[in-house]
Nucleic acid binder design. Structure first.
Lengths: 278, 278
DNA sequence: TTCCCGTGTATTGTCAGACAATATTGCTTT
DNA sequence: AAAGCAATATTGTCTGACAATACACGGGAA
């Protein structure tokens, strides 16, 4: 396999291959004309043919560049290589590059001006709560720190959200919550269970009656994704967790905000423990 | 002034004019060829000349389309007019349309596939905590509801964030907080004061030591923006608020999480009161 | 009939090349 | 030395073309 190949995989869907011709850090140009395509033995696919169906070029590019930025390859304030450069580096058209960059601008990772170029925005402007940015962010530092940060955030959000849900849920929303809780118990695989678990917590956020809480669901999804991937759990641990979930469900159903909040705190404490004893 | 002119003004910066040739709701096509440019009296600017320097075409377009989506013109699941259509409607190139759409896709307002078109994503996927989306969202329902939602969110976030800040702030971060607090007191105009106020709260979020809390600053900015615009405040009210801020500053400085949290709750209660007695 | 399969077609995806707008940089002129 | 002016590099915008895709429809076969 080609040494310089980099794999990108995130919420956009299918994995996407994208291979820089040569690694493009802050590099001074030295090309006299352009790398002359040179020898390409039959059977070896051309660089630009290295795309996988299911992910468009601009999307893959956005992932690649976005990941590099979040990872710290180009610190805030840095001027990125210009569009023509990216275009050449990845053997894609300038339009594709521009669309990728526009996506990153929409996430406030970048900004640009004519004659200047595109530069990395200061970190505090980054939209870290964006699905993709969060995914990139999750890969860069060690997972421990990331999980701890997310979990701390859950401690802030979920108890209150659940209390609101207990006060304002509709019957329909309650049905969703109850069903997810039931399906958690009946799940036969850990993956199935995790999915129901996620649905459970997202349903609570929706039932909270505050529109602004809903987008925070991406955090929960991300947390569970990591939890599912990097921890193993014993059977009686799962049983215990199930009981904690049922307590939450019950208190929302009976419309007891304080009890619901307390129940969530218990569940989170349990999750903390699972993480700690990883 | 042209009747169909729509004004777009949001975080992108300068206001941008963009005038659809004709209002483009779900419209059945009837054009035999294309509107033939027809009579355009001298002195009347052409439609595509209606741009204001400082806002690019794709950015303005993104604002216009994004606003329409959030406002509910195209409910979730709706297939949008295709790129060629937008291009014609606004007299811009297809590239510009595509870049605008890519930005909205990056905010999860849209998704698209070849042969299908672009459709509006379900509301719960929208990145409401994005600066621009929030700005669009703030315009659509009545402001009362919006302010109430944001304020409720602040009640969830800020007390805890401040408690963390009291525990983990660095001296440098403390200096920022203190300075903002001081400048609030010394401000001579309400606008100046509001800006310092905003800086104060943002500095606390940054000092909380949890990266994920920082992006929530956009909410505070948005809240203050609306508070500043739609409420008036008496002098002794401001004095009282200043004291509340100073209490927060002091408790963070003395590293008393619980007291800091309580102080923030007091301030928020005060703000609630200002809003209610609007 | 009913089901399967290919073929048509509308739409986004991608590419290439050109020119415009813009703000920095350095040079020239006073 | 200072101020204005020109050269220049980069994004912004437009045009036109073709590729990839997946739905819709019609035709053929069981």
């Amino acid at each position: 396999m080609h040494p310089n190949r980099s794999l990108v995989l995130d919420s956009f869907g299918k994995p996407a291959f994208l291979k820089p011709m040569r690694d493009a850090k802050p590099d001074k140009e030295e090309s006299p004309k352009k790398v002359a395509a040179a020898k390409r033995p039959d059977g070896v696919r051309r660089p630009d043919a290295a795309r996988i169906p299911g992910a468009s070029v601009h999307t893959s590019l956005a992932s690649e560049i976005g990941l590099r930025i979040v990872r710290g390859d180009y610190p805030p304030g840095t001027i990125l290589p210009n569009e023509a450069k990216w275009s050449e580096t990845f053997s894609v058209s300038r339009s594709a590059v521009r669309e990728a960059i526009k996506m990153l601008m929409a996430k406030s990772l970048l900004a640009s001006r004519p004659k200047i170029g595109s530069w990395v925005e200061p970190r505090e402007r980054w939209n870290l709560l964006d699905r993709d940015v969060l995914a990139w962010y999750a890969t860069s530092p060690d997972r421990e720190v990331f999980l701890k940060t997310v979990q701390e955030f859950r401690h802030i959000i979920e108890p209150e959200a659940t209390a609101f849900a207990a006060m304002r849920r509709t019957d329909e929303q309650m049905a969703e919550i109850s069903q997810a809780c039931r399906e958690m118990g009946e799940a036969t695989s850990l993956q199935e269970r995790t999915r129901a678990d996620t649905r459970f917590h997202l349903a609570i956020l929706r039932a909270s009656g505050n529109d602004l809480l809903v987008p925070l669901g991406v955090l929960i999804e991300s947390a569970f994704d990591h939890l599912f991937t990097y921890t193993t759990r014993a059977v009686d641990d799962l049983n215990h967790a199930q009981k904690l979930h049922e307590a939450i469900e019950k208190n929302i159903r009976l419309q007891r905000p304080d009890a619901a909040r307390a129940a969530v705190r218990k569940l989170l404490a349990n999750t903390d423990h699972v993480i700690k004893s990883r």
